[in-house]
Write a protein that binds this DNA or RNA. Sequence first.
DNA 1: CCGTATCCTGCGTGATACTG
DNA 2: CAGTATCACGCAGGATACGG
Lengths: 134, 134
Amino acid sequence: MTTRTAAQRRQEAKVAYDAFLATCPARQLLDAISDKWVSLVLNALSGGPRRYSDLDRIIAGVSQKMLTQTLRSLERDGLVERTVTPSVPVRVDYALTDLGRDLQVLMLAIKSWAEGNIEQVRDAREAYDARSGG
Amino acid sequence: MTTRTAAQRRQEAKVAYDAFLATCPARQLLDAISDKWVSLVLNALSGGPRRYSDLDRIIAGVSQKMLTQTLRSLERDGLVERTVTPSVPVRVDYALTDLGRDLQVLMLAIKSWAEGNIEQVRDAREAYDARSGG
DNA sequence: CCGTATCCTGCGTGATACTG
DNA sequence: CAGTATCACGCAGGATACGG
């Protein structure tokens, strides 16, 4: 047996894992969270628990399939908690876990960056396209 | 004509754009950067300019096609600058722009989070799978 | 209301070969 | 060295219908 605690193992992990390596578990986790729906779902939950139908409405354009699939994946990874209230009709709420909130803060920064810099990106695209086209 | 400067327009953008809306340009930008290769490429460039072949080596498992495609997209969006040195054989370097460095800092946080929390996620997955399986 | 099941399409992705 | 071109494949992802 090992004498290391879980916390100690996690500390080592910060140097032991390298997302640049294709076979590294951290790379696969990075792939999983680098998903177009993940940041939207996490940010939609930033204000507190939300019902499934709320999320469906907040995140415009998501299909039932992708919303459910993303929520299941986040729940399995321990980022989101699912609570079922056995009323009629049934009510399901989703909430961020502590781990999920950690990531949500980072994802909010990404989302805000996109919203705040889209104009510069648009200018860059026009310049690039003009160069290529001309 | 408008009297607003480009900087002023960008300031307004921070409230005018909403990535939750499917048709919003910011949503499309968020989709573009929520790509599994984008964070790896940006972080691979964090230490300074890199040659194409360097990137190919650093980012294990990426195909030529996806690497080129990702670099082109980042270049078009003004996040990466491409420099060709007409030697024989030709040498091509990629570097972050100021805008790209902004985003890279955020992406590094995501990558580090993945590397530092994979063990907790792994534990969560095992618990979830045990619950479903049992 | 909150999903799951099924079908179907297309595009993301990799492999391979070729070019300047 | 740094791509481009072409092909082939799988599965992501949407639409629809049904179920608890």
